[in-house]
Design a protein around this nucleic acid. Structure first.
Lengths: 211, 211
DNA sequence: TCTCCTATATACTCGTCGGTATATTGATTA
DNA sequence: TAATCAATATACCGACGAGTATATAGGAGA
């Protein structure tokens, strides 16, 4: 049999980068499986044995990739917080007045809340984390809150938003948008995008200045 | 020494009703202690030994009054749901147009969410309950949701509320008002009443018909 | 080829916690 | 006064689950 070209038949011998990519991929798979189970059954009610079983591997393998159970949770929450931060930052950099940009941020925020990792942020109370974990967690959530507040400020400054209590408004908006993270079922009749649009419309309705 | 009047010196011998009242009082004390710890540390992270210790009693005493751990949680959640239902029903029966009555319901709802038992409703996901418990739980939450929807309908009918998507509006309003149950700390600078007013104003703002 | 590192498994330890068996005390009732 | 019941405690059991000790197999590098 003629020897095959390297490009046609990928060698079973992995290079350095390939192995690192493999490793990353496996880590990611563990995280995905874990976050799904955490969301469905709760953190304390999910054992790492369960997570391992759902991937057809054994518990020590999870420890090999992720250290310990809290670390798994922290990585999941961090993923979610990163999505949220990204949503806030990119939408904030767009053109348009304050109200338009706020709308855009809220929409993205709502969508993240219907993603596995976004959900996890909302479902993970401080009480599940160690004090250090909780502090980190709070700091990141605060940064996102400040982003939203800044946007509301901008809107008030440029006249696209009525003069409201910035702090309470940010709390209220975020609170409402967090909620789908608790009840949204991916198989419902409305798509995440439709839900996000509907909620944002309702919330934004009261902010425009009365003409 | 002269014998005292019964009214002046309460006898140490308790009557039937007194004993029943005592029992009820103790049950209530257990529930209060439990709900506080559940809210602070999470259901799974709170052991009944902890709850018992916080009352200076022993675990079997809790079992004597309440059966088992899930029962304790169910009673707490039920208390909260009753407060919520009561808030919805009494405010709904008041005079005024739909918008005014909705405002009143939302305000009461928000206040309940800053009470120990109200908080517990929001912090207790279905995943903590047995299937039967979760079903009961969902049914009662649904009833409350329907109350709010009915009120929005009324407001649309009488012209005090703009024609909105009733279902999504009810979800959004309730979602926003649920949130204080997760972050509100009783020692913050704003009183529950102030928070409730501020949130309701923000949420209601968008519902009045544009003139 | 010998050694070392990575990935993975099996099988264990140990603490925690829900729940229970049983004893005790004292008031209630027949 | 004997029998009973309510209230409470101590001491235990059994399960579960986080985390670990240890073994193995095979590729990577010297």
């Amino acid at each position: 049999m003629a020897p095959r070209l390297a490009s046609a038949a990928p060698s079973p011998f992995r290079s350095r980068e390939e192995r690192e990519r493999d490793r990353e991929e496996k880590r990611e798979a563990v995280l995905r499986a874990a976050v799904r189970m955490f969301n469905a059954r709760g953190f304390h009610a999910t054992s790492l044995d369960d997570v391992a079983a759902s991937l057809g591997i054994s518990k020590p393998t999870i420890y090999h990739y992720l250290g310990n159970k809290e670390q798994v949770l922290i990585e999941c929450v961090t993923r979610g917080l990163e999505l949220l931060s990204a949503a806030a930052d990119t939408a904030r950099a767009q053109p348009g007045d304050g109200l338009a940009r706020l709308r855009s941020v809220l929409r993205s925020y709502a969508l993240v809340m219907m993603d596995d990792f976004g959900r996890c942020v909302v479902r993970t109370g401080d009480e599940f984390l160690s004090p250090e974990g909780a502090a980190l967690f709070r700091a990141r959530k605060r940064a996102i809150d400040l982003s939203i507040r800044a946007l509301i400020q901008d809107g008030i400054a440029d006249g696209s938003i009525a003069p409201v209590d910035v702090r309470m408004t940010a709390f209220t908006l975020a609170g409402a948008l967090n909620w789908p993270g608790r009840w949204h079922a991916p198989d419902g009749p409305l798509s995440p995008s439709e839900i996000a649009d509907a909620m944002v419309d309702i919330l934004i309705g009261g902010l425009a200045p009365r003409t």
